[in-house]
Structure formats: C-alpha cells, structure tokens
Amino acid sequence: MIFSGAAKGAGVLILAILAAVAIFLLVNAWPAISTPTDELSESVHWIKEGDSLLDYVGPLVFGTVLAALIALIIATPVAIAVALFISHYAPRKLAQIFGYVIDLLAAIPSVVYGLWGALWLMPQMFPVFEWLSEYLGFIPIFQGPAASPPRTILTAGIVLAVMILPIITAVSREVFLQTPTLHREAALALGATRWEMIRMAVLPFGRSGIISAAMLGLGRALGETMAVAMVLSPGFVYSFFILQAGQQQNIAANIALKFPESSGLGVNVLIFTGLVLFAITLLVNMIARWIVSRRAEFSGAN
C-alpha cells in the first residue's frame, strides 16, 4: 500500500517536472515566437537581417543532430565490441577491471573532455583529416581543405563519441550478460562457434537493449555543451563538410556561448532553441521506444 503510493507519487512527480520544464520553456520562448521577423533581427544583433526565428534555429538543429549522429556512428560499434569482449571473451578478472575502467570514463566531467579534445586530440587529428580530405575528398562530406587547427564538427563528434561510449557499453554489457543460458546452449549445441553463438543468441536477444543504449548515448550527445563549445569553431550553415571549420554549431553550446552577452529578446530566442532541443530529445526517445516495441513479438521476452 505504502509502496504503491510511493511508486505512483514518483511517477506523477516525474510527469509534473516534465510538464513544468515544458511550460517554463514555452512561456519564456513565447516573446521570441510572437515577435515579427523584421523586428527580431533588429533587436537581436546576432540574428542576420531578414532571418526569421526558424531560419536561425534550423542550422542549429542540423548541427546538433549531425554532431550527435557522428558520435553515435563512431561510438556504437566500438561500444558493442567492448561490451562483447567484457561479457563473452575476456577472462573474468580482466573483464572486471575493464568494466571498471569503462565506467570511470563516465565519471569524467565534460569540461575535461573538452580540454582533452582541444589540447591533445586536435593536433593528433589534423594529419588524419588531411589524409581524409586528400584521398577521400571526392566524397562530399570529406571535401577539403581540412581546417587547421581542426576545430570541426568531426572532432567534436569524436570527443562526443568518447563521452557516450561508457553509457552505451555499460547498458549493452548488462543486456549481453542476461542472455538466457538456454539460448546460448541452443546455439552451442548446434555446433556454433563462440562468435556464431553471439550472432545467433546474444545479439538478437540484446537488440532492443542495444538500441536503448544507443538512444541514451544519443540523448547525451544531443545535449552536450562544454566539450562542443571548447572544440568546435561555430558556424550557422546547413553544411555536411565535416572537415571544415566554422560550418555548424550545436544548440547547447550555442546557448552557453551566447547567454552571457544576451539580454531581453536575445534570451527568449536562446530559450526557444532550448525548447527545440527538448522536443528533439523527446522525439528521439519516442522513436527508440517505437523501434523497440515494433519487434516485441520476436523479442526474448515471450
């Protein structure tokens, strides 16, 4: 009775907080939404003449999603490989140590990642980027010239990838370890090697878990501020050139950089971008849910 009350209370509280955040964002973004386009660029100096609110937010949304996707594309395969290594290949002792180290990565503050990205990673990445632009430059996204220093969205994506690696790894590892012995033995008894067993039993069982893990990582990458602000040289264009600087910017870093020098309507515009970020994150989570539920019939749960 007490427990069900507490559980219900906690559930209602979460919904209430979520609603409160949404209302706060909406109320504070409203002045920006209701101001006519020509007045907007007059009173907020960093909005280009004649640009509407959506013209301003669009490239930011694009940059946010692009940085997060780069991070996800890099981090997910690595995280799955590490999680498989820990759960099925490494000797027990080594696996434990490895698991702790990965978890420790999650405890590092994002400013530190930003410093690492700006001071150490960038000089390392420059030759790689040059090589990419020289030999793979015919693929549009790798078109040069590679920026020097490489304060580009690819660098930001790599830093973000390292940041979201621990969460994806930790969740995937837990899911992989829960593969029922029954299914693992079914594969082994058919004469599957360890890798075949993983493909037949572990990965299909963990599929929805991997998706959830990746979405958790995506959520973190979408909202990341400091690391991106420290690494990326911002630009406000719809641009797929991931090796060039001054092309994209993500919402959170933009808010952090602009907020100190903003007042009046400028703050409202920034809060509006925050509202958009909130909506994107919500959408990502809903899509993740939908993907997970779509194949529920084939999942290990029944």
């Binding site: 029954l182 058919l190 004469g191 069982f205 029944n302």
Partner: peptide
C-alpha cells in the same frame, strides 16, 4: 568441440527455440 556438436545433436529440458527467429 564445435565439430563434435555438429555431429551429435542435443535437445534440452526446456524448449529453447531462438525467440528472435
């Protein structure tokens, strides 16, 4: 052992078809 298991099949106590297949 993988080859041994390919020529000697096994059925378990609890039915264990691959749920995702």
């Amino acid at each position: 052992p993988v080859r041994v298991r390919r020529s000697i099949g096994m059925v378990f106590q609890r039915p264990n078809p691959f749920p995702t297949m």
